[in-house]
Amino acid sequence: MNRTPPLCPSATLDGGVPTGAAGGDGLRIIGLVAADGTVSNLRTALPVDAAMRAALHSHARPEQRFRFAAPCAEQGCGNWQAGDTGGHCALVGRIRSHVAASGAAPAAPPGLQPCAIRASCRWWQQDGPAACAVCTLVTYNAADNAPGA
């Protein structure tokens, strides 16, 4: 039986198969990047079908406007760290360390912010509320992987 991996909360527009496509496994929009650079989570994820993905591709950097979620690529992702217990995403740990080291960690929210994917989120399953505390500070920066960036 196929195992459905947890969802990556910082996927790319091309990081998942559009909803409705053959083998589609639920690429979706889970947040909107606000003017201050933080992410406002949607209370309900918006599925991204093929037509919507094509439309979003007309924008230069859709990942800097939207947060996408898609099934975790695990070994197919450079942030995956294999281990005896099956491996984990190393990215959220680095983000937490960076935010802590910057000395500018946001004040702890009184509660968890709304999240459309928490129950199946890879970061939540690994780090729990500590992941949520930094999650809204994260956007994907495609320029990091561009030649010469």
């Binding site: 990556c8 910082s10 996927a11 790319t12 990081g15 998942g16 201050d36 650079g37 933080t38 898609a70 690529a73 070994q75 197919g76 992702c77 450079g78 942030n79 995956w80 995403c89 990215l91 983000i95 960076h98 935010v99 910057s102 500018a104 960690a105 946001p106 930094v134 500070l137 994260v138 956007t139 994907y140 920066n141 495609a142 990091d144 992987n145």
Partner: peptide, 21 residues
């Protein structure tokens, strides 16, 4: 991960940036 990419897996460049306001 270039190995995973060659294997045909959906390599997702999970580069994220924490922006601290």
């Amino acid at each position: 991960n270039p190995v995973a990419t060659r294997a045909g897996k959906a390599a997702v460049a999970q580069t994220a940036v924490a922006k601290v306001a």
